[in-house]
């Protein structure tokens, strides 16, 4: 009897990862170039308007403050979009069965999708950063911290993307998830301002927003200053990553909305 797969199917998981990467690279105008251009537009509009009038952190220009937030926003939104759109599209087209028929465990499925989401997030993040660096001086305080927060944040959003993709039955559901959860969380997370400048009530509200910690810690890597300690941001990001990963793994394991 022919036995192909042993206790693990690492090559199968690697194939699924490669397929997900190939999928977004095949439409790189939409998945990499478009977010880069729109982020650059934010930078030009807000950077030019507020550059001379707004100082968030002493000794740092407004555009220098803005860049890490915009990079993180693009990174987070794209990491989320990768898994969520792929899973939903496959469910709608019916081709999700090709993966479900394969001898892949729920952990292998999770690793492939989160891995691809992280890669897309990081690729878009680097792309935005490179374009921004061409027009504005970018400060780099700690590259290891920048990388750590980039990986953690795209991991958080990648896991959330899996959850949204599985949960959604139609594009309308995913759109609601993106517009009513992801977009407000990213816009109200201190991309354009420091939460120290907000009234106490809104400051308090912001501390419940997980994306705030992703951006604040990431920004610390660039500027060496932040609203809260980068250790606190790292712990919050890590806890969210673990929590969302466990939830997405549980959904995959139960076969929720995937296996009847």
């Amino acid at each position: 009897m022919r036995q192909i797969v042993g206790a693990h199917n690492i090559y199968g998981s690697w194939t699924l990862f490669r397929k997900e990467v190939l999928r977004f690279l095949k439409v790189s105008i939409q998945t990499v170039l478009a977010p880069t251009v729109s982020t650059l537009l934010y930078l030009l509009v807000f950077g030019v308007v507020f550059e001379e009038t707004v100082v968030v952190y002493e000794g740092h220009s407004y555009s220098g403050f803005l860049i890490p937030g915009l990079v993180m926003m693009a990174l987070a939104q794209n990491a989320f979009a990768n898994g969520s759109s792929s899973i939903l599209q496959s469910k709608m087209n019916g081709n999700i069965i090709f993966v479900l028929l394969a001898p892949l465990s729920y952990i292998e499925f999770y690793l492939a999708f989160v891995g691809a989401a992280i890669l897309r997030g990081v690729v878009v993040g680097i792309s935005v950063l490179l374009v921004a660096a061409a027009v504005i001086r970018v400060e780099l305080y700690s590259i290891p911290l920048i990388l750590l927060f980039a990986l953690l944040s795209s991991g958080v959003m990648g896991a959330l993307g899996i959850i949204a993709g599985i949960w959604s039955d139609k594009y309308d559901h995913l759109s609601a998830f993106q517009n009513f959860i992801i977009l407000p969380l990213t816009f109200l997370s201190g991309v354009f301002y420091s939460i120290q400048d907000l009234p106490p009530f809104w400051q308090q509200i912001s501390t419940y927003n997980p994306v705030f910690y992703l951006i604040d810690g990431f920004r610390y890597g660039f500027l060496g200053v932040s609203d809260v300690s980068y250790i606190q941001s790292m712990v919050v990001a890590l806890l969210f990553f673990i929590g969302l990963s466990l939830l997405s793994i549980a959904m995959l394991r139960s076969g929720y909305k995937l296996r009847g």
Partner: peptide, 28 residues
Amino acid sequence: IVPQELVYDPFFTVWEMLKIQSGYFGLG
């Protein structure tokens, strides 16, 4: 399993799809 519905992944070519499906089964 050859499914009843004509499902396909519009992102890939015939060869890419076969390579991907083969890879899912641990075959390189």
